[in-house]
Computed example of a mutant assay.
Amino acid sequence: MKKLFPAPWLSLALWLLWLLLNLSLSLGNVLLGALLGFLAPLLMAPLRPQPVRIRRPLSILRLTLQVGMEVVKSNVEVAWLVLNMDRRPPRSAFVKIPLTLDNANGLAALAVISSVIPGTVWSELALDRRVLLMHVFDLDDEQAFIEHFKQTYERPLMEIFE
């Protein structure tokens, strides 16, 4: 069964996402979504760096809610800064964040999260995976930003993946 469905949760998620994006439960969409959910993980299995083992599923829900709140908050902050740029220009900076997380799947999730939050962009990961270089649109206190990033995103991902 594992050979046919190397990532059953991913298959289910792709199928549901297909149906959601098409806003249709027609037979064609149900079958096409099922085919996508079946074939995509099967064909992409050799590209996965390591199997995904989720340690604490409830942490996913907490992290998702936290990221959602951060997206809204950051959107408002970035919009305010852009609208008031003539009064105070943003203090952009590159920040080196030391990482404890070393799971490849966790790092991939961290890359997605940091790219989704307005005002931050994942720039580079050191070859040893111990330091992340991130561009921050407006930075007041570098140490406070690093602590917030590690506490809010890295720690929950470590709970989930390690």
Rank of each mutant, 00 (worst) to 15 (best):
residue 78 V to G: 11
residue 162 E to D: 14
residue 91 R to E: 15
residue 117 I to T: 01
residue 63 L to M: 04
residue 126 A to W: 01
residue 84 N to K: 12
residue 122 W to C: 02
residue 73 K to S: 11
residue 48 R to L: 11
residue 97 I to C: 06
residue 27 L to K: 04
residue 160 I to Q: 01
residue 126 A to P: 02
residue 145 F to K: 04
residue 119 G to Q: 06
residue 20 L to E: 05
residue 127 L to D: 10
residue 118 P to E: 09
residue 142 E to W: 13
residue 63 L to K: 01
residue 48 R to C: 10
residue 162 E to M: 09
residue 107 L to T: 02
residue 134 M to K: 02
residue 150 K to Q: 05
residue 59 S to Y: 00
residue 26 S to Q: 00
residue 86 D to P: 13
residue 108 A to L: 14
residue 34 A to H: 12
residue 10 L to A: 11
residue 94 F to V: 04
residue 71 V to F: 13
residue 85 M to Y: 13
residue 54 I to E: 12
residue 145 F to E: 05
residue 76 V to P: 06
residue 3 K to A: 05
residue 50 Q to H: 15
residue 30 V to C: 02
residue 129 R to E: 05
residue 58 L to N: 06
residue 111 A to S: 15
residue 116 V to E: 05
residue 160 I to V: 06
residue 87 R to H: 14
residue 63 L to W: 01
residue 134 M to C: 07
residue 123 S to Q: 09
residue 158 M to D: 02
residue 111 A to D: 07
residue 83 L to R: 11
residue 29 N to V: 03
residue 40 A to K: 10
residue 53 R to A: 07
residue 16 L to W: 10
residue 68 G to I: 03
residue 149 F to S: 00
residue 82 V to M: 15
residue 74 S to H: 06
residue 4 L to V: 13
residue 9 W to N: 13
residue 38 F to W: 07
residue 99 L to K: 01
residue 86 D to F: 13
residue 8 P to M: 04
residue 152 T to N: 04
residue 29 N to M: 04
residue 49 P to N: 15
residue 78 V to W: 05
residue 78 V to T: 14
residue 13 A to T: 09
residue 137 F to A: 09
residue 59 S to C: 03
residue 73 K to H: 08
residue 9 W to Y: 12
residue 142 E to N: 10
residue 127 L to S: 14
residue 43 L to Y: 04
residue 107 L to R: 00
residue 99 L to F: 03
residue 151 Q to D: 15
residue 81 L to P: 12
residue 50 Q to G: 11
residue 149 F to Y: 03
residue 63 L to D: 00
residue 147 E to H: 12
residue 135 H to F: 02
residue 79 A to C: 15
residue 48 R to W: 06
residue 74 S to G: 10
residue 113 I to K: 02
residue 42 L to D: 01
residue 58 L to G: 08
residue 4 L to H: 12
residue 156 P to G: 01
residue 36 L to I: 11
residue 142 E to K: 14
residue 23 L to E: 10
residue 108 A to P: 08
residue 40 A to L: 13
residue 18 W to V: 00
residue 142 E to R: 12
residue 55 R to N: 11
residue 121 V to W: 02
residue 7 A to H: 11
residue 127 L to I: 14
residue 46 P to I: 07
residue 143 Q to T: 15
residue 102 D to H: 15
residue 71 V to C: 14
residue 145 F to M: 10
residue 123 S to R: 10
residue 58 L to F: 06
residue 58 L to T: 09
residue 30 V to S: 00
residue 35 L to H: 04
residue 94 F to M: 02
residue 49 P to H: 15
residue 40 A to I: 07
residue 56 R to Q: 12
residue 83 L to Q: 09
residue 105 N to E: 11
residue 138 D to W: 14
residue 14 L to E: 06
residue 137 F to H: 09
residue 1 M to Q: 07
residue 53 R to H: 07
residue 4 L to T: 15
